[in-house]
Write a protein that binds this DNA or RNA. Structure first.
Lengths: 263, 263
DNA sequence: GAGTGGTCTAGACCACTGT
DNA sequence: CAGTGGTCTAGACCACTCC
């Protein structure tokens, strides 16, 4: 076993044992750790790199290496869909109170900041064309949403929603970024187009963030992202909307409930 | 911007542009890349480390650095639960045909290899005690399952299932590792104890693998794991079983369907 | 044994943080 | 300005893969 692995293991054990609490600063790379482990700087840094990649340690330039604190979780439940559907036909006054994100996080609208960007001339790639059962290159409306806590700088998710352009022309609000976030969410918007949803499918995978995502979501080494594709089917089984959300893996818990029929 | 970042960006762009195809070997670290970028070995390796952490490049000791190929996905659907419940009361002959994993992967039992390990004296920690609504320290039965493709060395998942020990004493098969995998799965086993499930809840998060998980699941730098907690409630709303599965994030797609009631 | 990546060293200098 | 982490170099030697 390499020296840097032994150092990483030793530090990991000492952290787990509580020698340093979450938030505490570890001994300095130079001279503390290099002399303690009788090794060179590179080797100490390689060991700390392992722990950072595991999410055990936060490296902060100019300040030190810290034991990472567990972060507050955002829970996203599958009940949100039925809840959103039930609310889609409520009065605007009612709808204006809260959206699905607030339903999940338990926060008021005022705690969250939204940002919307539209692109009404996106061409369907193979994946989207396959979902919507349309030719590649069909014109789509792409809406990008970012949600963040008012006190934090970085958004905690980035969502991109796709609709077939031809189907949304009937509602000009759907093409106006300043109308965001609409009271009622997507299901209310689809309702104005005469579309009722019958079923929602969600597909979840995980991977390390790309450099771009790390930048955008303020992720550190040792973070993963959850990729959630939400596909909304109308009552005839056609795809009405497809969207994907990028969620920080360690801050997000996705909860699904499957009711079972009685024997 | 640091030199290693510029090198990583340059290589990333060239890979995306198709200069090297998935599976192709990149130029050697020494002397090709060091001379091409007029830099030292460490700097080239730091750049390649970035790409490896993103999952773009596979580093293979003694052979080279390769453009990573997308891997075959295993799909896990939430329909499996109802399917498993419907099957739990079928004859053993029928049940013996396939299990829920085969239902998802579309493979025959003979393509998969299972491994089961039991520990009938696990003490409930705070998380499990909270789930089952029992005192911390209550005796639990922990069953660990590993599933892998017959042709591959590493399992593609590791699952740990927890049952309250007192409730399983009625069925000695539940305490015998050699009876694994039982035809019918957990729902069939619970059926023999007179327990019928009414609802299943699944909670999903993602994070980088621990050193132990990388070892066990054969994961490389640049992989994430999905952690799925499955909580099974009986028809009275009590927790009957809790289990967690560790799934390789880039090989697994979890699919959930939410049916919506009609307006 | 040749080729290739992995580990380690010792030292220089840069960049960020807080006093 | 002092303290601390980040980048980079040049070179030595080890470990793995494949012919």
């Amino acid at each position: 076993m390499a020296k840097y692995e032994r150092i990483a293991d030793d530090l990991r054990v000492r952290i787990q044992a509580g020698e340093w609490q979450p938030g505490d600063r570890l001994p300095t790379e130079t001279p503390d750790l290099t002399t303690h482990y009788k090794t060179s700087l590179n080797t100490v840094r390689q060991a700390l790199g392992v722990l950072a990649a595991e999410g055990v340690v936060d490296k902060v330039h100019g300040r030190g290496n810290f034991v990472r604190k567990p972060r507050k979780r955002v829970v996203r439940t599958s009940e949100r869909h039925q809840w959103e559907k039930d609310r889609a036909r409520e009065s605007e006054a009612t709808r204006r109170q809260t959206g699905a994100t607030e339903h999940d996080t338990g926060l008021a609208v005022s705690d969250l900041v939204f940002d919307a960007a539209f692109d009404d001339a996106v061409s369907a790639d193979e994946v989207l064309a396959g979902l919507f059962q349309i030719p590649v290159g069909t014109r789509l409306l792409e809406r990008t949403y970012r949600t963040r806590y008012r006190e934090e700088d970085e958004p905690f998710n980035v969502a991109r929603s796709y609709l077939v352009y031809d189907t949304v022309e009937g509602n000009p609000d759907l093409l106006d970024p300043s109308k965001e976030p609409w009271p009622g969410g997507t299901q209310n918007q689809l309702h104005t187009l005469g579309i009722e949803l019958g079923r929602i499918e969600e597909r979840v995978t995980a991977r390390p963030p790309t450099a771009e995502e790390s930048e955008e979501l303020g992720l550190k080494a040792g973070d993963s992202v959850l990729i959630l594709w939400k596909i909304s089917y109308d009552i005839d089984g056609r795809v009405a909307e497809a969207s994907n959300v990028t969620l920080p893996g360690d801050r997000t818990e996705i909860v699904f409930t499957t009711p079972l029929t009685r024997w």
